[in-house]
Amino acid sequence: MLSELRTMWEIFKHSFTKADTVQYPEEMPYLAPRYRGRIVLTRDPDGEERCVACNLCAAVCPVDCIALQKDTREDGTWYPEFFRINFSRCIMCGMCEEACPTYAIQLTPDFEMCEYDRQNMVYEKENLLINGVGKYPEYNFYRVSGMQTAFKDKGEGPNEARPIDTKSLLP
């Protein structure tokens, strides 16, 4: 009996506390910079697409919401011919961002993606690509990867050594 009265008193004291609710549309909640929201595809500092169409994001995606097709440019670099994310499936887990070797796919603090038509939740590459570098402003995969492209031979990038001629290494 006494504990019931005490409970009632404790609850009654909450008459004088402020509500914890954030009145969302009028008052935006604080979203951390690393909040996992809408997915974007970033560009490297030269303005080219970072995505190399390696398919790791699609492979790691637990709900299979990512679809893409690889194609090769004339300079030898890879890029996705199409890149499609079905946001009505996406669970914003961020595993694609972890898997991405080139920092291309990134999650942003934006969750306001309401549509009346479900088909509108499917984002194509032109909807996903942004004109910016995202979280890693310096990084440019083809400049540091040691891969031969039209604008750079093997070993010419920063922190790279020339390839070793295995034949001349023979004793």
Binding site: I11, H14, A19, D20, T21
Partner: peptide, 8 residues
């Protein structure tokens, strides 16, 4: 009830 449960 909302008032006593710190919501609106």
């Amino acid at each position: 009830l909302g008032f006593w449960q710190d919501r609106y």
